[in-house]
Amino acid sequence: MNTTPTVPAPPAEPAGPPPSAKGTATRPGDKIFLGLSRGSGILLLTLMAAIAAFLTYRAYIAISENEANFLTSFEWNPQGEPVEFGIAILVYGTIVSSIIAMVIAVPIAVGIALFVSHYAPRRLAAPLAYVIDLLAAVPSIVYGLWGALVLVPYLGGMNKWLDQYLGWTYIFDKTGTGPARNLFTVGILLAVMILPVITNVTREVFLQSPKMHEEAALALGATRWEVIRMSVLPFGRSGIISASMLGLGRALGETMAVATVLSPSFLFSGHLLDPGGGTFAQNIAAKFNEADEFGRDALIASGLVLFVMTLLVNGAARLIIARRKEYSGANA
């Protein structure tokens, strides 16, 4: 997601648009050009509206035939008799795996961002930032392949260990057997995937924290940690939040990495280490082939929910960024 360049910070205030010379707009060339560019903007808005409209339309077709409650049913049987499908399992799986990913990724990402911006030896910092940037560009299917063939076998032992020592917590109680193709593994894989995304944005915010504050704190005899706690972190808080939400948006909608790693099922289990569950995107990918037109409409209905979820998360992230004029979240 975060593949745009580390744009060198704009020299002071960005130049911005010139005051539009009203007189020039009358020339035909200008009119056409303005029309074209405004048209493109409007096209984008229309596109968003069309996405919402078409998904809602197809979802309506599906939901109006649904004999189960779309929001609370644990079934996915749009082609059966009776027609029953619901997203309860998907909501649960999507949110749980994303939360696991966030819990793991956000602290580590902040740590790496601090490492690159304040701790790493100078000579190391720039290449590091570069590498993290590149990692954000690795296609998700490659993460999925790695997750399924390397991570899952690797986490088998850790699952046993968690079950043995933390089994009393209920969530880490492993009642099933077999390889670690569960929501917990999905969460870890998603954490690895969104780590570079969150790190990139956070690091840029940290780099922009006011040098004067830091130097003043240092001059007063503060340790490096105290400088960071008193000056860098408060400055970067909203940056961290919005970066996390961008990461969350990506985790919510990730398809391939979940589809390769998870052993899907529509049975609810509160035990994170048990196989089963599913996410919106994974379910769409898994059920698509066997779906007839109505089945596809049902999948589109679930896709609409995912769309709204990511819309809310991303919108919130952007609003937080927008409140801070100093940092534009453009690079995400």
């Binding site: 066997e290 779906a291 037109e293």
Partner: peptide
């Protein structure tokens, strides 16, 4: 090989 259901669809 999309599966029987998908094939018929």
């Amino acid at each position: 090989p999309v599966g029987s259901g998908g094939g018929i669809t």
